[in-house]
Every structure is written in C-alpha cells, then in structure tokens.
Design a protein around this nucleic acid. Structure first.
Length: 303
DNA sequence: CCAGGTCAAGGGAGT
DNA sequence: ACTCCCTTGACCTGG
C-alpha cells in the first residue's frame, strides 16, 4: 500500500511553493497566452519541488492539481509561447517521478460531465480530459490507469440508466490515450451512482476501472457493505496495476455541525483494506501533514 | 500589506 | 430564484 495526498502540500504552500497559481477571467483576457503560460511555468517548477519533497519524505503517491495551466480549456498547450520550455519541464518532472517511484494521478473537476444531456458540455469535457492526458503524455508516461485520470459521472437527471448509457457511448469518442487513463468514482449522493451502479452500468460495457471512495460509500452505500463494494471496485482494475481508493474521515468527528459529506482535517480511523493491496489517496484537508501523522501513528515505515 | 469579497465551468440540494 | 457545494482555495481590490 502507498499512501498519497492531493494537490497541496500545506507546509510548502506557506512558503509560496504551490502548483495552483491561476487567474480570473479578466486577467486572462488582458494578459493572454503569455500570462497564463508564465503561471503554468511557475506551477511546473513548484510541482517539481513538491515531488522532491515527496521523495525526501518517502511519499510515492501524489495527485496533481488540475489548475497547472489556468484557462486551459481556451487554448492548446502547443499554442503557448513557452511551449518548448513547458515540454522540457514536463519531461524532467516525468523522469524524476519515475526515478523516485512516484505514482502521479489526476482528478479533474466536477464540471466534467461525460454523460451530460448538453452536447457542448460533453465537448468541453472531452477537451478537458484530453488536456489532462496530454500532460501525462508530455511527462513521458505510458497511457494506463497507473497514472489515472479520475472523474465522477456527475449527473443523473433522475434517470441513471439513460445517463450511464450515454456516458459509455461518449467514452468511446475520447482519444485513445485518454480512454486508457480514465477511471470513475462512486458518489456521495443517493441520487447519483454507487460502486454497484458503476460496475454494471459502466465497467461491464467499457472496462473502465472504479476508484472506491470510502467516505462517499458511507454517504451513499446502496445495498452493499464497504467490504463488498471495495471488492467489486478492486476487481475492475487491470492485472499488474494497483487499484486506487480514496479515504477521508467525516468532518463531523471534528465539528458535529458539519455536513456528513464534508472531509475532516486528519484521519481518525485505522483504514481497513479488507486484505486488498491498493494505493490509498487521502482526501483530507491537512494533506501531507495528515499523511505523516497517520504513518507515524500506525508505525508505517518509509522505504 | 492584508482582510474581505469575489471568482469559469454542471448539476444537485437546500432555502 | 438564489446560494452553496464539489476534485482544489486563490485572486484582486480597497483601505
């Protein structure tokens, strides 16, 4: 098992080292491709530094934030004036990640609705997913769910079956590398999709693996237990690639007034993997600090 | 320099 | 009809 954290390293962030520089629409329109390209270059330099911190701390699993290149839905990377430098930075990052055995993944935003009823939403989703995939291409990664791009289905329109059918049809229209990297995750709302829904409605038709989220399952279990859902999700991953699961404690442990869906700052339970060998992405607010604390508390030695 | 208001996107849920 | 939330807080302005 590898423990991972998502996007932000809170200690480095305090030192202004972070990979999520962005800008408002007005600023993008005034500054253009040069401006967002510069932000992207700065983000990539800091991403490399975050990976160096990870390596120094024995962390081999990390989610890259989706905001490396602000407004990337509005242009292609090759149109940025800094494209050559960007390619070199990404290549170096990819080589470094490989050399230090770091599994890098993505989790694009909730606006990626591949089964949307609106054609323009589907089109934008396809572009955004391809852009994520292109970053992994430029890092030199062989397309597979080892470097997953994970999304939710995100819409149901009170007709889950119809949406899943549309989702599968649209999945086939994605470019090959994006298809090879895509995974789907169970939702925390009863109106949306359980692991069971995804298994029968998507995986069986497309082969797309399922990321099992413990906390979402608690909010929206369907008829299965944690153990049964996890087993189902694990079975969807290809031979030789460790499945990914998401874990977070409920915020109500820290604040009884919080919503049940909210994520806590730290992990309070012992994560039960029910015997499976998986990589665990911690979705907690205190990020790498929570990871280090969990590792210490449970006597997990770094390699 | 900093606190506070504001900020792309889709859809669901609460008011 | 409006606001908040989500995979993630950061930007930007006025004082």
């Amino acid at each position: 098992m590898n423990l991972g954290y998502a996007c932000i390293n809170v200690e480095l962030r305090k030192k202004k080292i972070f990979a999520g520089r962005t800008c408002r629409k007005d600023t993008f329109q005034k500054g253009g491709l040069k401006y967002v390209g510069d932000l992207g270059v700065q983000n990539l330099r800091d991403l490399h530094r975050i990976l160096e911190w990870n390596a120094a701390n024995g962390i081999t699993f990390y989610r890259i934030g989706s905001d490396i290149f602000p407004w990337s839905s509005e242009y292609e990377y090759k149109d940025l004036p800094q494209y050559k430098e960007i390619c070199e930075l990404l290549s170096a990052i990819g080589k470094y990640a490989t050399a230090t055995n770091q599994r890098l993944t993505y989790h694009p935003g909730p606006f990626n609705i591949l089964g949307s009823q609106k054609e323009n939403v589907v089109q934008r989703t396809m572009v955004d997913l391809r852009h994520h995939s292109e970053i992994f291409d430029l890092m030199g990664f062989t397309p597979s769910v080892y470097n997953k791009i994970n999304i939710h289905i995100g819409a149901a329109y009170k007709d889950k079956y119809a949406v899943l059918k549309q989702w599968c049809a649209n999945y086939q229209k994605l470019d090959e590398n994006t298809r090879k990297r895509l995974t789907i995750e169970n939702d925390d709302k009863p109106s949306l999709f359980t692991t069971y829904d995804l298994y029968h409605g998507v995986h069986n038709h497309t082969g797309v693996p399922i990321v099992f989220d413990y906390h979402h399952h608690s909010c929206n279990p369907g008829d299965l237990s944690h153990s049964e859902s996890l087993k189902l999700a694990v079975a969807t991953w290809p031979e030789g690639i460790k499945p990914v699961v998401h874990y977070s404690s409920c915020k109500q442990i820290e604040d009884p007034k919080a919503k049940v869906q909210a994520h806590a700052d730290y992990v309070y339970e012992t994560i039960d993997l029910y015997g499976h060998d998986v990589d665990v992405m911690l979705e907690v607010k205190q990020k790498e600090k929570a990871l280090l604390e969990y590792r210490k508390k449970h006597g997990i030695l770094i390699k």
